[in-house]
Write a protein that binds this DNA or RNA. Structure first.
Lengths: 217, 217
DNA sequence: CTTTTATGAATGAAGG
DNA sequence: CCTTCATTCATAAAAG
């Protein structure tokens, strides 16, 4: 469930691998069950609802916030103070200080979006704009943005190189890649047991996934 | 400000569904093949991040309200209900875990041997060779080898660092920050204090909020 | 089963 | 741009 993912994001919890056994739940025919990563319609629907729930919560919170804050000064920068955690106040020094920037999820999404827009050349001016926008979502500098794009491109390239190192002279279909290489992980290594079936593209990047997803049924 | 998350929604990515007909060619006993959605690892990763982003946003908003309103229970409790999703249980567990390469004893032995030979930087070509050799003893990829050497070197170095500094230990009051002391780098960005909007780092990290928000099960 | 540790992998930043 | 390093994250394995 969702919780598991969040736990992963936070700290190490024990968790175990789980592969869905297809056809294991609705059919007892002699179908020996293959292990793949797969979602049934039911699960898709569940996921959709879950995400929709998140979206709804966000909306509600935004609304609540809007109505609750009739004071203009309460918004924006003030929010940062919410995060005054015991660490900072107690030491006020370097304990909490992480020396390297880490993009917030929101920032990351924006960055990814910009990256996917194809304008592979983040010009100096562009960087400024982006930085400006992102700074509304957390501390950031132009250097951070620059580095991010630099790394993003390099690594996306390297990954492609691994994926298709076989073509030397024949030109492949060099389209469709921009949308394809937004993924960030999962390399070419083979898990010891079994590899999942491959499929075409599925893009869940958009929160409006909900409308898209249930159209399948 | 923070809830500019509408921006995220603007990101119109091409999203499409893909249905995989599993066992559709056989199995006509009652149910003629079921449609399921197959997701690749990358897609799973994307989804995971997407949801994590939502989670982070929601958490931030929740915190925000707790502070802005005098009734922390108001927002908190209400929100909890939104998560009461009866369906979650049907998915039950995580859909897919990320898997990682684990060197076989033989592979490990070979790697250690090569590492001890002193060649600190296995070039790309070298990596290929090593990978080739190791693949005879189990599933492996160049990336795995690359990572292994990276990690091996880094950790070997760190260990030395801990063992070596036995000289001039006069004021070992605040130890462990040895690497931090010489961190006179250009702090282009502000080491964030109260402005942080990163859920991973601060108060949101504790499971309490999570459990509060996810009153599933 | 839960907690801890070891380690593969991801990634921001520096160097060239 | 590309490579390398340092740090952090996530998880398989080990310990309790």
């Amino acid at each position: 469930m969702i919780m598991d993912w969040e736990n992963q994001q936070k700290q190490q919890q024990n968790q175990q691998q789980h592969e869905e056994l297809i056809n294991g739940n609705n059919n007892s025919s002699g179908n020996n069950g293959i292990f793949v990563k797969v979602m049934t319609d039911e699960q898709m629907e569940i996921l959709r609802k879950q995400i929709a729930a998140y979206a709804a919560i966000c909306e509600q919170l935004v609304e609540m916030h809007k109505s609750l804050t009739s004071h203009p000064d309460l918004s924006g920068a003030r929010l940062g103070n919410l995060y005054c955690d015991p660490f900072v106040t107690s030491v006020g020094h370097k304990i909490t200080g992480r020396q390297r920037w880490t993009p917030t999820p929101v920032q990351l999404q924006i960055l990814e979006r910009i990256f996917d827009q194809g304008n592979g050349t983040p010009s100096k001016q562009k960087i400024k704009e982006i930085t400006s926008e992102l700074s509304q979502h957390g501390q950031i500098s132009e250097t951070n943005v620059y580095n991010w794009f630099q790394n993003r491109r390099a690594r996306s390239k390297r990954k492609q190189q691994v994926t298709a190192p076989n073509n030397a002279e024949s030109e492949m279909e060099t389209e469709v890649e921009s949308s394809n290489e937004k993924k960030t992980k999962s390399e070419d290594f083979q898990p010891q047991h079994n590899q999942a079936t491959r499929a075409e593209d599925l893009c869940f990047q958009n929160p409006e996934i909900s409308s898209g997803m249930h159209s399948v049924d």
